[in-house]
Simulated scan of single mutants.
Amino acid sequence: MSDKPVSEMSFEEAMAALEGVVSQLERGEVALEQSIALYERGAALKAHCGAKLAEAEAKVEMIRSAEGKVTGTVPAEGL
């Protein structure tokens, strides 16, 4: 598990770290206290990824609007 603060991670770094957290939790080979710490880090990573995606969607929306194209996004989760 990386010690890098979540707020300093790129989207790709945070996704990779989140996948690592999920993998460790799914294996169930960690002590309860470590599981709780992993879960907390996973929640922070998920929130960070969501914020990064929202930023990207807002940028695309601004570009499309500036080009005079129809605006409006569909959440990636709905695809």
Rank of each mutant, 00 (worst) to 15 (best):
E55Q: 11
V60A: 01
L18V: 02
R41N: 09
F11V: 06
E12C: 06
G28E: 04
A54V: 10
F11D: 07
A47H: 14
L25N: 13
T73Y: 08
A66N: 12
E8G: 02
E8F: 05
S2V: 12
A37L: 06
A66D: 10
V70D: 06
G50W: 11
G20A: 01
A47S: 13
A43M: 06
M9E: 00
K52H: 03
G20L: 02
M1H: 15
M62Q: 14
E26W: 15
V21R: 00
E57Y: 07
V21F: 14
H48I: 00
A58F: 11
Q34T: 11
V74A: 09
E55C: 04
V22W: 11
E26R: 15
M1P: 09
V30T: 15
G68S: 05
K52S: 04
G72K: 12
L38W: 00
E29P: 08
E8H: 07
E12P: 10
E19S: 03
Q34R: 14
A44H: 09
L25P: 05
E40F: 12
S10R: 05
E67K: 12
A17M: 03
G50K: 10
E40I: 07
L53R: 14
E61G: 00
L45S: 00
L79G: 11
A14R: 00
E57Q: 06
E19K: 09
T71S: 11
R64T: 03
V70T: 13
A16S: 07
S7T: 02
M15H: 13
L38M: 02
H48S: 00
E55K: 06
A51D: 10
S7C: 14
V74R: 08
R41W: 13
M15D: 03
R64N: 06
A43R: 13
E8V: 03
A14D: 02
G72H: 12
A66R: 11
A16R: 05
P75G: 10
E61Y: 03
H48W: 14
S2T: 15
A44W: 08
Q34S: 12
S23T: 13
S10T: 15
P75I: 02
E12L: 09
E12G: 05
L25Y: 15
L32S: 12
E33Y: 09
K69H: 09
S7F: 13
E8W: 09
M62I: 04
M15Q: 09
K59M: 04
A14I: 02
E13Q: 15
Y39G: 01
E67P: 01
F11N: 05
R27H: 13
L18W: 14
K46Q: 08
A47R: 10
L25V: 06
L53S: 06
P75C: 00
E13N: 04
K4I: 06
M9G: 02
H48F: 10
L18R: 03
A17D: 13
E26M: 07
M9V: 02
R27V: 04
L53K: 15
M62C: 04
L38A: 01
A51R: 15
S2Q: 15
K4M: 08
E55D: 14
E61K: 11
A31M: 02
S2Y: 07
E12Y: 07
G42P: 00
A76T: 05
M9W: 12
G50I: 03
E26V: 05
V30M: 03
L32M: 07
V6I: 11
E40M: 11
V70A: 04
A44R: 15
L79Q: 09
L79Y: 03
H48D: 00
E12R: 08
G72Y: 15
E40V: 10
E33Q: 13
G72T: 01
